[in-house]
Amino acid sequence: MAGVSGCIKYSMFIFNFLFWVCGVLILGLAIWVRVSKDGQEIIGSGDSDITSYVSVNILIAVGAIIMVLGFLGCCGAVKESRCMLLLFFIGLLLILLLQVAAGILGAAFKSESERILNETLHENVKLLSMTDDGKAFQQALDEFQKEFKCCGLIKGPTDWGNNFENHSKSCECPRMPDSSCTLYQGMYVYSQPCISFIKEVAAKHIIVIIAIAFGLAVIEILGLVFSMVLYCQIGNK
């Protein structure tokens, strides 16, 4: 009868041990943020405490799942337990299927989400030219312009209408204007509207997310292959 490959066995153990350590770190950090005084100050400093708590709770769940899978993979490899390896295989397969489903849903609703974003921004741009309403949104965009060197939301400085003078400081280019600036009402302002910057950042982040998801999928597929090979070898032992 064929024996169990030591290379696959210990590769499986090392991979899952690192997997388990990552789960411990994620779970420990998330619990610390959730219960400690300093952690409460961190998550309580944002605009939405509820969103922060939900994010921390999700991290706790993710860390716990990674820990359990890592434990099953390590023990299954060392003890040559087919039951543990099978549970590890099923758990990892479910995670991979969830990732694939999330990717399909994201691709399917991409155009719809872009349409909703554009409609929302076109509605919000009306607030820039108002005097009484929309003060909070105007202040937020004013800070955004100053930080990321853009002006206006969709069309540029004309979005501000009669309120441009009140918010021109955050739009103003340095004393030595370059090609990114344009002349508007006697002063040089940034020509790029903030929507262009937002879309550029979103596109870059999507590429990073896709790359990370693809890398995780490759690692998960390798884990599935190794666990099933080891499972079959133990059965043939």
Rank of each mutant, 00 (worst) to 15 (best):
A2L: 14
C7I: 06
I8S: 03
S11C: 11
M12F: 06
L18R: 11
V21I: 15
E41L: 09
I42T: 13
I42M: 13
I43P: 07
D47H: 15
T51M: 08
T51D: 13
S52M: 13
Y53R: 14
V54R: 09
N57Y: 12
G63S: 11
I65N: 03
I65T: 10
M67I: 11
G70D: 00
L72K: 07
A77N: 00
L85Y: 11
F88T: 10
G91C: 12
L94I: 15
I95P: 01
L96T: 14
A101G: 12
A102S: 08
K110Q: 13
N118L: 01
E123N: 13
N124H: 06
L128H: 13
A136P: 04
Q139S: 10
L141W: 05
Q145A: 04
F148D: 00
C151G: 02
K155T: 07
W160G: 00
G161N: 15
E172P: 01
P177R: 00
C181R: 02
G186W: 04
S191N: 08
S191H: 01
Q192Y: 02
Q192C: 11
P193S: 08
P193T: 05
I198R: 02
A202W: 12
V208T: 07
I210A: 13
G215E: 08
L216Q: 03
A217T: 14
V218F: 05
L224W: 02
